[in-house]
C-alpha cells in the first residue's frame, strides 16, 4: 500500500504554495518557459491534491493502488515539475538543467516511463480526462481500490473529448473520478466565456450528470469541503474552482499577457517580495 496521504493541516498549505510559486516564476525566467499565468492559477489546487488528498508514495511511484493524478492542462507542467520534486519523486537538483537540450523538464509532462510521478503525457488538451476515466474504470474492473483526480483548464473545455468523457463517466457512475476545473476565465487569446460560450460552466457539468461543487479555487478549506462532503456520492465529481490567472503576483493577476510572457530578473525579485519569499 502507498503511504497514507500527507494530511497536512490545511493552514500549512499556503506557505508551500507560495514557495512553489516563487520557484515556478524563477524557473520561467531562467529557462524561458511560458504559461506562468496558467501555472499560478492552479498552484493552490496542485498543493491541495499533493499535500492533502493523494494516496501516493514517491518511493513507490508505480504502486498499483496509488491514487492517480493527471494534469490534463499539461501546459502547467512547470508547476507540476516543482510539486513532484518537492514531494520527493526526484531530487530537486534534477530541475537544475530545466529546459536545456536533453532535459525532461520543459513545457509539458513527458510520459510516465520517462519521469516518475507523471501519470500521463498531457499537453494536447482534452486527453487527460479520457485517460483518467480509463484509469478510474480500470480500478473497478480490476478490483484494485484507488481514486483518480484531474485538473482541467477552462479553455480545455473547448475540446469535444472532454464532454465525450463526461458523458461516459456519468453513464458508468464512475464515482472514483474527480475533476477540478481551473476556471481562471482566460484561454490563450481571450476570455474563455467569450471564445466558446463556456458559461454557465457548473450547470453544464451538472447537466452532464456529475456531482458539482463550485468553490474559490484559492481557498484550501473550500477545496477540502468539496471533496469531503461528496465522498459518498455515486456520481463522478466536478469541482468548479474559480481561480485568478497569475494568482499571487499583483502584476500578473488576471493579465493574460502572462500566458506567454517571461519575467525579467527585476520582476522575479518583485514577485519574491509579494510572495514573502527571501530570494
Amino acid at each position: 500500500m502507498p503511504e497514507a496521504p500527507i494530511q497536512n493541516d490545511i493552514g500549512s498549505l499556503e506557505p508551500i504554495a507560495q514557495m512553489l510559486r516563487y520557484r515556478i516564476i524563477k524557473t520561467s525566467h531562467e529557462s524561458g518557459t511560458p504559461h506562468l499565468g496558467s501555472c499560478l492559477s492552479c498552484t493552490d489546487l496542485l498543493v491541495f491534491f499533493y499535500w492533502h488528498i493523494l494516496n501516493i508514495d514517491p518511493q513507490d511511484p508505480s504502486n498499483a493502488q496509488r491514487d492517480r493524478f493527471l494534469l490534463s492542462k499539461g501546459h502547467a507542467a512547470p508547476a507540476l515539475f516543482q510539486v513532484l520534486a518537492e514531494r520527493g519523486f526526484y531530487p530537486k537538483s534534477d530541475l537544475d538543467g530545466y529546459g536545456e537540450d536533453g532535459s525532461l523538464f520543459g513545457e509539458h509532462p513527458p510520459t510516465p516511463s520517462a519521469l516518475p510521478g507523471i501519470e500521463a503525457a498531457t499537453g494536447s488538451l482534452g486527453h487527460g480526462l479520457p485517460m483518467g476515466l480509463g484509469m478510474a474504470l480500470a480500478s473497478r474492473i480490476s478490483d484494485v481500490p484507488y481514486s483518480v483526480y484531474a485538473i482541467l483548464s477552462d479553455g480545455e473545455c473547448n475540446e469535444g473529448s472532454v464532454w465525450e468523457a463526461a458523458l461516459l463517466a456519468a453513464a458508468q457512475n464512475v464515482s472514483n473520478l474527480t475533476v477540478a476545473i481551473d476556471y481562471n476565465k482566460w484561454q490563450a487569446t481571450g476570455r474563455s466565456d467569450e471564445v466558446l460560450g463556456l458559461a454557465p460552466l457548473a450547470e453544464k457539468w451538472r447537466a452532464f450528470g456529475w456531482c458539482v461543487t463550485e468553490i474559490d479555487g484559492h481557498d484550501f478549506v473550500q477545496m477540502s469541503d468539496a471533496i469531503e462532503k461528496n465522498k459518498a456520492d455515486p456520481r463522478p465529481k466536478a469541482i468548479i474552482a474559480n481561480t485568478i490567472k497569475g494568482r499571487g503576483v499583483s502584476f500578473m493577476e488576471d493579465d493574460n499577457n502572462w500566458h506567454y510572457r517571461i519575467p525579467t530578473a527585476d520582476e522575479v525579485k518583485l514577485a519574491a517580495q509579494e510572495l514573502g519569499i527571501e530570494a
Partner: peptide, 11 residues
C-alpha cells in the same frame, strides 16, 4: 483515451 488509461493501469 479510456483504452490508453486502462492499458496504463494493467488491463
Amino acid at each position: 483515451g479510456v483504452a490508453a488509461g486502462m492499458a496504463l493501469s494493467g488491463l
